[in-house]
């Protein structure tokens, strides 16, 4: 039986997820519970459909006579009415792709890749679906498509090793480097992360570290010191840093998940952090989403 890849969305012509122009595939599922997560839909397994912001109803009767009951709807009703809603307010949170179908979607953008672009598997945590991705990645390599993954690396090493040879670039999240805090805030086992870091550096893979500057979880002085120390040991080709935002608030509401406001830091603070990383001899970029 063919493996399916579970996809939240496909974003074309991305300028941020690696070199060149990229097609970013947001894959479903994540092992972490980052309080600032901006893609909560990637961790929701019990509802494949949500009502998006086009629908302004809560409990009122739908003027189009579609019995989906707005935000209070059940998956079954939403699924039933997915194609019926005239304002297209019912959205699929995730969908199932065969290898061939996903490959076809990726290759549509091939003309944009030039010499440096390609596909980036993001998420969620893309490596959770490594087993399903093997044959797709293999086939993309045969087509000479550059492959990047944007990963937290909080997956078991065997999942990483299944696809590591196909991956040209790792964009790795660098968040909390204190074991206890990592476990308590993110529900992540730091040992797994560090082991995987070793594996990719041992193989001399290209790595970009991406640091979400979320206050206070990541930006507290203790954690920043750990990050600077870590970067001295594991030197990437680049570090990307960015401020937290609250753009995902509405998604949480639709999914019925409690939202924690993300505290942002100032431009001056982000500049100081950028300069400190630069002092380590690492190219640093402040990115905006």
């Amino acid at each position: 039986m063919e493996d399916y890849i579970v996809v939240n969305s496909i974003q074309r012509s991305c300028f941020h997820d690696g070199p060149g122009i990229r097609t970013t595939i947001f894959l479903h599922s994540c092992a972490l519970k980052c309080p600032w997560c901006s893609n909560p839909e990637s961790s929701v397994n019990n509802c494949q459909y949500i009502v998006n912001s086009s629908c302004h109803l809560i409990d009122d009767e739908c003027p189009y006579k579609i019995e989906c009951h707005g935000y209070n709807s059940t998956t079954e009703l939403l699924s039933h009415n997915f194609n019926k809603c005239p304002i297209m307010a019912i959205e699929k949170v995730f969908d199932f792709y065969t290898n061939d179908k996903l490959k076809k979607e990726i290759l549509k953008d091939r003309f944009l890749y030039s010499t440096d672009g390609g596909v980036t598997f993001s998420g969620g945590e893309p490596l959770i679906q490594s087993v399903s991705l093997i044959s797709l990645m293999k086939s993309l390599k045969q087509e000479k498509i550059n492959i990047a993954v944007e990963t937290s690396l909080f997956v078991t090493a065997d999942l990483l090793l299944k696809v590591i040879d196909y991956i040209d670039l790792f964009i790795v999240d660098l968040k909390i480097l204190d074991s206890n805090k990592c476990l308590s805030y993110l529900q992540g086992n730091l040992e797994i992360y560090l082991h995987n870091i070793d594996e990719i550096f041992k193989r001399k893979k290209n790595v970009i570290f991406r640091i979400p500057l979320i206050s206070p979880y990541v930006t507290n002085e203790d954690n920043l010191s750990l990050i600077y120390k870590f970067l001295q040991q594991f030197k990437p080709i680049k570090v990307e840093i960015f401020k937290g935002h609250n753009l995902a608030k509405e998604k949480y509401l639709k999914l019925g998940i409690t939202y924690n406001t993300v505290e942002t830091i100032t431009d001056d603070e982000i500049k100081v952090i950028s300069e400190k990383i630069e002092l380590l001899g690492i190219d640093t970029e402040i990115i905006q989403f």
Binding site: S13, F15, G20, I21, F111, L112, S114, G117, Q288
Partner: peptide, 21 residues
């Protein structure tokens, strides 16, 4: 304006790719 100015290199590549179409 801020989007294009931050991403000017890639935006140029993007436009170029479509001009080939």
């Amino acid at each position: 304006s801020s989007y294009i100015n931050i991403n000017l290199n890639k935006f140029t590549k993007y436009i170029r790719a479509y001009l080939n179409k």
